[in-house]
């Protein structure tokens, strides 16, 4: 299998469609025959990050590279950036307003979930410019 590159755009302020890209990626991974656990971990991590792009930023783009050994997903938004990443990573920390909570988000569990389900996460954020989250999921248990 060669490295497969997939690209998805994520619209700002489109709560109904948020998760569309993650769903497509999930079905693609399933079709390629990855283990259910790998497919699910990737889907959940990317979904959380996609939702964050919609509710905390102004949308953005998702690029996935899929190889037999690992799945790397880069989520780049044009939002306000994250002032304190270690605080944002804490379980329960959320700046989500009331209307977002009423939609079932804002538990402050998204970033912790992303970390939990990924094998590696990098958060690159610049105030006023945006945030890029790069996550990697290893498809096979590490040897040795």
């Amino acid at each position: 299998m060669e490295v497969i590159q997939l690209h998805y755009d994520v619209n700002a302020n489109d709560f109904t469609c948020a998760g569309e890209a993650s769903g497509k990626l999930k079905r693609e991974l399933k079709r390629l025959g990855f283990e259910p656990d790998v497919v699910r971990r990737t889907a959940i991590a990317v979904y959380e990050a996609e939702i964050n792009m919609v509710i905390h930023a102004d949308g953005g783009a998702i690029d996935a590279s899929i190889s037999p050994e690992c799945i790397t997903v880069v989520l780049k938004d044009r939002g306000p950036g994250i002032p304190d990443v270690s605080l944002a990573m804490r379980e329960g920390y959320s700046t989500a307003p009331e209307n977002v909570r009423n939609l079932g988000f804002g538990a402050g569990m998204g970033l912790p979930n992303i970390k939990k389900y990924s094998d590696k996460v990098d958060i690159d954020t610049v105030i006023g410019e945006g945030t890029t989250i790069t996550l990697r999921i290893n498809t096979a248990p590490a040897e040795n």
Partner: peptide, 11 residues
């Protein structure tokens, strides 16, 4: 809301 169905999908 639709995210309930999407959450179930991811899981």
């Amino acid at each position: 809301n639709p995210q309930v169905v999407r959450t179930a999908e991811m899981m």
